[in-house]
Design a protein around this nucleic acid. Sequence first.
DNA 1: TCTGGGGTCCTAGGACCC
DNA 2: TCTGGGGTCCTAGGACCC
Length: 430
Amino acid sequence: MSAPALIALVDCNNFFVSCERVFNPLWHDRPLVVLSNNDGCAVARSNEVKALGVKMGTPWFQMKDVARRYGIVGLSSNFVLYGDMSDRVTAVLREFSDEVEVYSIDESFVGLGSACAGAESPAATGQAMRRRVLQCTGLPVCVGIAPTKTLAKLANHIAKTQPHFDGVCDLSAMTESMLQLQLSQIEVGEIWGIGRRMADRLQRLGITTAGALRAAPLKRLRAGFGVVMERIVSELRGIPCLSLDEVEQPRQQLIASRSFGVPVRTVEELGEAISTHVSRASERLRRQELVCGAVHVNIATSRFADTERRYLNSITVGLPEATGDSRVLAGAALSGLTRIFREDCHYKKAGVVLLDLSPSSVCQHRLFNPAADDARSAQLMVALDAVNARYGRDTLRLGSAGLERRWQGRSENRTPRYTTNWDELPLARA
DNA sequence: TCTGGGGTCCTAGGACCC
DNA sequence: TCTGGGGTCCTAGGACCC
């Protein structure tokens, strides 16, 4: 059997910040953050800002003092620009290999089967990629090379954090003892697929590093953590469980959501916002040549509102026929909103509800690929319709009970709860 | 005053059927 | 007092990712 083909993970360094620097050299030496929508919080940080200890997702207003003291520049995000830069990086990578899986806006997996032909080593190919991407786009990238995706991610982490690797780390070139030494220095939470919760659980079992997880008994982990963990551990051992997907799959859902900058006080405003969301979503839907079979509307008060009562409710409206027609989708979304309100007795009594809180709304579309199995789509759509017709408001109640449990499970000191009962909300009356 | 906006996959458990 | 078992489909929720 031949050695498994190698995979490279090519990841742009501080991607959004680097994109901004390409177009404004003045910012090369300044500590920089790129901010989320409404300039809410930091979604990208330059190395200088990272060194100051500013965490990903820190709200801008909370770092204003630090920003003033150290001259941090905060920039509004420009996702059209980042998408364009991302496409350029992908185009360069395709010069090296036919097997390119665009994993996210700033990283791609690249199959090195053909890319290494004629090259002195996989690492040399990685260096060539770095030079070429920098030359063509101005963006710095790091490359991690390994026999599996999970190891390639860790290799990339090593390339980024240990300067003597010069931006390229090939784990397949290491001896077993060198590999184990590297992995034993990486916290278990750094592994791709291990989030905070899993990391906590593993740490309680004494498994604190990637090396320890790699050496832990597979069967016990499978029993305790499920199939996802089994795959991660196998991948750490060099057994590929996640294939390279070069062909982009159509989306299964498409979400348009925004937090409101100001409190929304009337149902009418909410309705207008939902129409706007639907129209944005439909536009993307059509651009991706998809149709959708159901519309999901979710409204919630601000997660940060300092009030005892929080409101969160949602509804799924199935469509008789999959469509991308924004008028039909808006109609479905608004009927969902109406239904949420109709099922509240307070609304019925008062006629008008004024929300004196700051809600955010989400509009979500479940999509079906028209080129795929139509019968399956139809069945699913009918099923969604059937569910809503059968259970009506009970569906909502079940949902809210689950959320309540979840919320209580997460907060230790105080247990504010979500309610779907308007009577429990501090509402201004019309 | 101000706290992002997208996505995916897996599993438990209920409804329903034979 | 007795109270099948196996199967499918579906949803909500939980976990993760960037």
